[in-house]
Nucleic acid binder design. Structure first.
Length: 603
RNA sequence: GCCCACGUAGCUCAGUUGGCAGAGCACACCCUUGGUAAGGGUGAGGUCAUGGGUUCAAAUCCCAUCGUGGGCUCCA
């Protein structure tokens, strides 16, 4: 949800409109399929959905009919009427609705609300009726269906969804809809979706020749084209600069190891399903590594460490492989081969807060560099029920490290939200959600406390008192993976990368063929100054050359014709369309190098 | 992994009730030497994702597999 501060979404008119639209949609669906079993239908960001168990699959034509019927129901101006009742009364009303009966059981026991979310207090059971449709519902709703603008709703798509979000349960059909207070808002929303599509990293990634996927190579295994290769080099350069300044040490580790390592680390039992299966040679099993940490732990443990050496920060752009389930793959955002901006920081408890905050500071530097203005730090905690299952079974250390993180964040004035039952198996973590300039949410950076693995690997250092102590470990990846970061940057910048990141920085455009040699000389001069440039000597007219450079979103075009050749100058056309004719090449080089050195977003 | 949709030239797509596989862009060659977002012509380019099936005949209908997408689940 992007509703922070101001009015709470749950109390807004928009929420009521969407919630009510969900009921109206359910009425239309139930009318169409009298044998339909309906389940739940809450408002969500930008709209609402409702899940149904239907006798057949819905088609796009069905959606049109349902939408049409919804408009009729809206026009009927039916009042929403609330009735509070006992579980027994509710059971009579919903006697043919097994999902509702299950929800009533939950409400009666007091364990969960009508959406299955855990509740502290036992809720009252209520129904809402409008027209001939009755739903088990807590509300709130608009007072009558006429409050919804018929031209401000739209059904979007049908998707599968498990009953109660549990993959062991039945797959239901979910209809997503969007609803707004006015037709203009709906229009704006649809426009924004169109804009987002134009920026989609899968589309732009292909057009700008950044990466491809190939069926024969395999799903989730991107091939980085030369342009993508440049971007990755630049990102690594950036990360290494930042990390060197911050005292990180670079290490390199192999892409596979014996099974023993991952048994030792504790990863195998938790993640065997999402690791590539082992290969066996001479009776020994080897796994391709899904993460770098165990290898880094080995490096830390390779010699005795003193408190004077701490903190030790081991960094590596390690390539990892994870067998993400087929349906989870998504462009560059979710892949099976990934290269992480990884590092493990080993420190004493006293050093923890400072180390932890240094990672947050790093985030802020990157946010500033990339112009990220909206972000939320999600502080993921363990859940007591998961101890010994999802989480390492040591409640004392969970509470202790969670408290350390909370204190560090609070002392550092870092705003955060807490998310229970979302921690890593070895400790609490901070995940950073960021929003691109067009308001699309991405989960990129992460830093995680690890109190479990150092002990498992028997890592220690000699403290001031001369006794052995187990260090804490912080896993951190401020730039996420190359895959995810590049995907984000493509959408964030819509392919209009800042000069330092642009795969090709300057395109020479000779006006006619006699200037081809001159263009090549300038390319050579630019390359001498570390600027990525090429000359377009194709048999096209100048206008077409400019067009193709614009389409590739190259920051600078240098037009050279007879005039420039005679004067020994260049004419600049920037990506934004601005022009400066007959400028000195040296001045241009100085300008470009300045932008690059500062990683400026200016042209 | 699950539900649904989709897969035609390098790219973007058309292809009627089953009847000889199409366009634009890109590419090659030729003409054009043009001053800030597409000059003109010619040509080459296809196992219609893959494998089966139905049919006189399949891009088209059916089944399976692979891949992609919208979601669900999951993300060390």
């Amino acid at each position: 949800m992007s509703h922070y501060g101001q009015e709470k979404y749950e109390e807004s008119q928009l929420y009521k409109i969407r919630h009510s639209a969900a009921h109206i949609m359910a009425q239309a669906v139930v009318e169409m399929f009298p044998e339909a079993k309906y389940t739940i239908g809450p408002p969500v960001e930008n709209g609402f959905y409702y899940d149904f168990d239907l006798p057949r699959n819905l088609t796009p034509e069905d959606l049109e009919k349902i939408e049409k019927r919804m408009r009729q129901i809206i026009a009927g101006k039916h009042d929403f009427i609330k009735k509070i009742m006992s579980a027994g009364e509710a059971r009579v009303i919903f006697k043919d609705q097994p999902y509702k009966l299950e929800l009533i059981d939950g409400l009666e026991k007091g364990g969960s609300d009508e959406y299955g979310n855990p509740l502290r207090e036992k809720p009252e059971i209520s129904i809402y009726q409008h027209d001939a449709f009755v739903d088990l519902c807590r509300g709130p709703h608009v007072d009558n269906t006429g409050r919804i603008r018929p031209d401000a709703i739209k059904l979007m798509n049908v998707a599968g969804a498990y009953w109660r979000g549990d993959e062991h349960n039945k797959m239901l059909q979910r209809i997503y809809g969007t609803a707004w207070e006015s037709a203009q808002e709906l229009k704006d929303h649809l426009w924004q979706l169109e804009e987002a599509k134009k920026r989609d990293h899968r589309k732009l990634g292909k057009e700008l020749e950044i990466f491809i996927f190939d069926d024969e190579v395999g799903p989730g295994l991107p091939l980085w084209l030369p342009n993508g290769g440049v971007m990755i080099e630049e990102i690594e350069k950036l990360a290494k600069e930042m990390e060197e300044k911050a005292g990180y040490l670079r290490v390199r580790t192999p892409n596979l190891s014996k099974e023993d390592l991952f048994i030792h680390s504790g990863h195998l039992p938790y993640y065997a399903e999402s690791m590539y299966p082992p290969m066996e040679l001479e009776g020994v099993k080897y796994y391709v590594k899904p993460m770098n940490c165990p290898m880094h732990h080995k490096i830390f443990g390779s010699k005795p460490r003193s408190y004077r050496d701490l903190p030790i920060r081991l960094a590596e752009y390690g390539t990892c492989y994870r067998y993400e389930k087929s349906g989870e793959l998504f462009g560059l955002m979710r892949v099976r081969s990934l290269q992480m901006n990884d590092a493990h920081m080993y420190c004493s408890e006293e050093q923890f807060e400072e180390e932890f905050m240094s990672v947050i500071e790093l985030y802020y530097k990157y946010f500033k560099l990339f112009g990220i203005e909206k972000y939320v730090m999600r502080f993921s905690l363990h859940a007591k029920e998961g101890l010994g299952k999802k989480y390492v079974d040591n409640e004392r250390l969970w509470l202790k490290t969670e408290d350390m993180v909370r204190r560090a964040m609070t002392n550092g004035n870092v705003p955060f939200v807490e998310a229970v039952d979302e921690a890593a198996f070895y400790g609490p973590k901070i995940d950073v959600q960021i929003w691109s300039v067009i308001g699309k949410e991405f989960s990129l950076a992460t830093n995680q406390v690890d109190f479990a693995q150092p002990a498992r690997f028997d890592l220690k250092f000699i403290n001031k008192q001369g006794t052995e102590e187990v260090p804490l470990c912080i896993h951190r990846a401020p730039l996420s993976t190359h895959e995810r970061l590049v995907g984000f940057l493509i959408e964030h910048y819509a392919g209009n990368f800042p000069v330092w990141l642009a795969p090709e920085q300057v395109r020479l455009v000779p006006v006619t063929d006699p200037q081809n040699d001159y263009a090549h000389q300038i390319v050579a001069a630019l390359r001498d100054h570390g600027i990525r440039a090429s000359a377009d000597i194709s048999a096209q007219r100048m206008n077409a050359k400019i067009r193709s450079a614009q389409l590739m979103k190259i920051p600078y075009m240098l037009v050279v014709g007879e005039n420039e050749l005679k004067a020994g100058s260049v004419s600049l056309r920037a990506r934004d369309g601005s022009q400066q004719n007959n400028i000195n090449l040296g001045d241009f080089i100085a300008r470009v190098n300045d932008r690059i050195a500062l990683r400026s977003s200016e042209l």
